[in-house]
């Protein structure tokens, strides 16, 4: 399953995390455990693909710096919010993002 998630990520650059959440739910994790664990998996895989992007010269670290203060504040807020948000809303928001990813991929 992990192999498939990595494959999707490398091939399409999107959707790996979505499949990870769905897969973790299938093997018995709760909704929130699936989301939290998917973040961990995606960090690991993003580090590898991010390195490849950087190595090929598509991006430099200084491009990202202006976005980091807001991003880290958002990370703190998201980390605080996940255990508190009702599952109902987590699922609804998640499904909208899946649909958005589908549309984006379709017109790629």
């Amino acid at each position: 399953m992990g192999f498939l998630i990595g494959l999707l990520n490398g091939l399409f650059g999107a959707g790996g995390g979505i499949v990870a959440v769905a897969a973790f739910q299938k093997i018995g994790m709760t909704n929130k455990q699936s989301h939290a664990t998917a973040v961990a998996v995606m960090i690991f895989l993003s580090a590898v693909s991010g390195f490849l992007y950087w190595y090929h010269g598509y991006v430099s670290v200084s491009d990202v710096l202006p976005y980091l203060p807001g991003g880290i504040a958002g990370g703190i807020f998201g980390g605080w919010l996940l255990p508190k948000i009702p599952d109902f809303w987590l699922k609804k928001i998640f499904s909208l993002f899946i649909l958005y990813a589908a549309i984006r991929l379709f017109f790629k």
Binding site: A14, G17, A20, V21, S34, H35, A36, T37, A38, V39, M42, G70, G71, I72, A73, G74, G75, F77, G78, G79, L81, L82, I85, L90, I93, F94, F97, Y100, A101
Partner: peptide, 10 residues
Amino acid sequence: AVIASMGIGG
């Protein structure tokens, strides 16, 4: 970052 850190939408 809020959305990504909750494992919602990359």
